[in-house]
Structure formats: C-alpha cells, structure tokens
Simulated scan of single mutants.
Amino acid sequence: MMLIGIDPHKSTHTATAVDPETNRDHASLRIDVTLQEYQRMLDWARQWPQRRWAVENARGLGHHLTSWLLARGEQVVDVAPSATARVRQLSRGAGRKNDRIDAAAAACVAALQGDARPVQPERSTDALALLDERRSNLAQARVRAVNQLHALLRALLPGGAPRDLSAAKAEQLLDTVVPVGSAELTRHAIAADLIAEIRTWDVKLKDNAKAMAALVAESESRLTDTPGIGAVTA
C-alpha cells in the first residue's frame, strides 16, 4: 500500500508518495487546483494500484479534492495540520517547511502515528442537507414575494387582500382591478410579475419535496410510517 500525502494550498496542491514500510519518498507532483489537474494527479497515482490518500486538513483547504477523490472510489484519510507540524519538528532540520515535506509528513503521520481519520464519501444525508437548505431559501424567497404582492394589492384594492395569498387567488383579485394612471399601472404590472414569481417558487418547492421524498425512500427511513410525518419533515 502506497500512501500519497497531500499538502493543499488555495491555488496549488502537492502530492508525495511515501512507502509506509520504509518511510521512503518515492515521487512527488505539484498541480494547480483545477479539475483537469486533479485528473492528472489521479492518473499519476495509478502507478500504485494499492494506494491511500492522506490529505492534510481534508475538511478545510483539502475539502474539494477530498470529495473529488472519494467520488471516484479512492480511499482518503484526514490528517490534522498539528500532526504534520509535529512530524516536521521531529524530522531533520526541525521546523523547516516546504510543500514536499508537508505532503510527505501527512502520509507519514497517517501511516506511523495513527493520527489520521478515514473520510467517508458523501451520502444521502449530505444530499438531504443540501435540499433542506435549498428549501429554506426557496420558502424565504416566496414569503418575500407574497409580502410585496400583499402590499401592492392593498394599494390597488379597497379593503386590501388576505395575508395568506396563493398565486391563483392573487390573480383573481388582480383581475378585478382596472388601473388608472401611471402609478396604478406600475403597481398592477409589478403585481403580475410577483404572481408569476410565486408560481415559479411553488413549482420549485414541489420539485424539492419530490427530490427529498426520493432520498428519504432510498434511506429506508421508517419515519414516514408515522401519521403526520411526510418526507420533508422526516
């Protein structure tokens, strides 16, 4: 098993292959942080069929590369920067720092000191978290549009409009208005635009709920067996 240590930086990553049995540095490669360069590094690493990646700060600067590798079936462990710093302090020329040494140190720490933690691929729970955040943003956008529409209808209709407006109900109310003058015409036009936006948010929210339901079903959760709990709540 060859360990490939990664020292990640914002614009470049350095990889160093280290044999854990001999602690010998076999080869090193520096790449730019692009998808094409990620592929070049993976192609380079395939010369060692049995390999594991040790990424320094895999949940920080190394997060994107780590996710990319995991998605392609690679084994990845996370090595804390404090652990690689300790290796540098104990190595010859204590404290000296360069990318190749850091990357090799990450692999050495993972192999010899047991400070590395396996990183798991993203799963349905991660996808659900993304969908949940998206749903929250969609709902907030819809609420803003409804509030703006309510304010416009209040100015256009005697007695205003109900607070809980659907797109269909708002359109019915707007159809009763015959605007006169530039201000009313502008309010009427903006209200029509907002109704169209609300319909768009409604479609996106329904699509979001369907995607959530598919992932909840995939996870084989039993929560939806409980009366009153649907996929979104689950």
Rank of each mutant, 00 (worst) to 15 (best):
L3W: 08
I6M: 03
D7N: 13
H13W: 04
A15I: 02
V18G: 00
V18N: 00
E21K: 11
T22M: 10
A27H: 09
S28A: 11
V33S: 11
T34G: 04
L35E: 15
E37Y: 05
M41A: 08
L42N: 10
A45Q: 00
R46M: 13
Q47G: 12
Q47H: 13
W48T: 14
A58N: 05
R59S: 15
R59P: 06
H63T: 14
S67V: 15
L69N: 12
A71M: 14
Q75C: 12
A85G: 08
R86S: 04
S91D: 05
G95S: 12
R96I: 14
I101Q: 14
A104Q: 10
A107L: 02
A107H: 01
V109I: 10
A110R: 05
A110N: 02
A111E: 05
L112H: 13
D115R: 13
A116I: 09
A116R: 06
P118M: 06
P121E: 01
R123L: 02
R123M: 04
S124H: 08
A127R: 12
A127P: 04
D132F: 05
E133G: 13
N137M: 14
N137G: 12
A141V: 07
R142K: 10
N147L: 11
Q148K: 15
L149P: 00
L152F: 04
R154K: 09
L156W: 00
P158L: 14
R163C: 01
A168H: 07
E171Q: 07
L174E: 00
T176R: 01
L185K: 05
A189E: 05
T200K: 02
W201E: 08
W201S: 06
D202V: 12
L205P: 03
A209E: 11
K210F: 01
E218N: 03
S219Y: 00
S219E: 09
L223A: 07
G228H: 05
